[in-house]
């Protein structure tokens, strides 16, 4: 609303600075709190102070000494990476077809994937629970990877087809005129242009898989395939009298690191990816 005609006065700059500060505090407060908690020693854990009185790595040492956490971390990374890879490959193929080719059934596919994007995931939990048990997929990696791919595909297809529509396909013609074979035209001209979109989509899909809790808690039962968010909720502390809060906080911080890295390095891409479809919608 501001910004019409007004000069960039110092007052305005200070005002914006304050607003920014409010936003930053709003966004970071809960994160900083869990970080602080993770560095508290067991003695000061329950002191209710926002900043640790005593810094310690005790909680981190604890979680990395148990398979409960390390195994979950491996599960989380493996499942999210595999699901992301497959969803992005399938999504890229479908999005290319949607953006570039004309074939009957295209709108149906778009419609179905939109329905899935809006689908209440809990409605799938009961049948999947039963079906996976009978197929022997329950409590396995594929048992989680499959629903992740399914719910990530709509996101991947929409984001990618929005990106693909932005590619000036005349370049393909130009490359052919410049002496490229179809393969060279794809590899040297189209692929480099499509790569940022594919990469962005991969980040968004990874975040989605990394984040999931409902499927992970419903379709797993042991350490074998439990992901970190689920493992967190089962942390009990090494003894009956020990508060698991420290361990939970430390584990929480660990799985937040990749998210923070993505956000720091790929802020622009993530924003573009999240909004690419919505703009034209």
């Amino acid at each position: 609303m501001a910004g019409i005609g007004g000069a960039e006065t110092t007052g305005k700059r200070v005002g914006w600075g304050l607003l920014n500060a409010v936003v930053v505090i709003y966004a970071l407060f809960p994160v900083l709190w869990i970080v602080s908690l993770s560095f508290k020693s067991s003695k000061t854990l329950a002191d209710g102070n926002f900043i640790p009185r005593e810094w310690s790595f005790e909680n981190y040492q604890n979680i990395f000494s148990t398979t409960e956490f390390t195994r979950a971390l491996i599960n989380s990374i493996g499942i999210a990476l595999i699901a992301t890879a497959i969803a992005v490959v399938f999504g890229t193929m479908a999005a290319y077809a949607i953006a570039r080719l004309d074939f009957p059934g295209k709108n149906l596919l778009v419609g179905v994937s939109l329905l899935i994007a809006m689908f209440p995931q809990v409605s799938l939990v009961s049948p999947l629970f039963e079906i996976e048990r009978s197929l022997g997929l329950f409590d396995t990696w594929p048992g989680l990877i499959l629903p992740y791919i399914t719910f990530a595909l709509p996101l991947a297809i929409y984001t990618l087809s929005a990106f693909f529509r932005e590619i000036p396909w005349e370049l393909e013609k130009a490359a052919k005129m410049d002496g490229a074979t179809p393969g060279q035209a794809f590899r040297r001209v189209i692929a480099p242009l499509a790569a940022p979109g594919v990469f962005t989509t991969a980040i968004l899909v990874f975040i989605f898989c990394w984040n999931d809790f409902l499927f992970a808690i419903s379709l797993t039962s042991t350490e074998q395939s439990r992901t970190v968010p689920v493992a967190l909720s089962f942390f009990t502390g090494s003894s009956q009298f020990e508060d698991p809060a420290g361990s939970i906080a430390a584990a929480a911080v660990v799985i937040t690191i990749p998210i923070i890295l993505f956000v720091l390095f790929f802020q622009r891409r993530i924003v573009a990816g999240l909004t690419s479809g919505a703009v034209k919608g």
Partner: peptide, 17 residues
């Protein structure tokens, strides 16, 4: 194929990579 005809083309949109 276009690449074997040894001719160059300038496009309306320039089609710069």
């Amino acid at each position: 194929a276009p690449k074997d005809r040894d001719i160059a083309m300038v496009f309306q949109s320039y089609a710069l990579y």
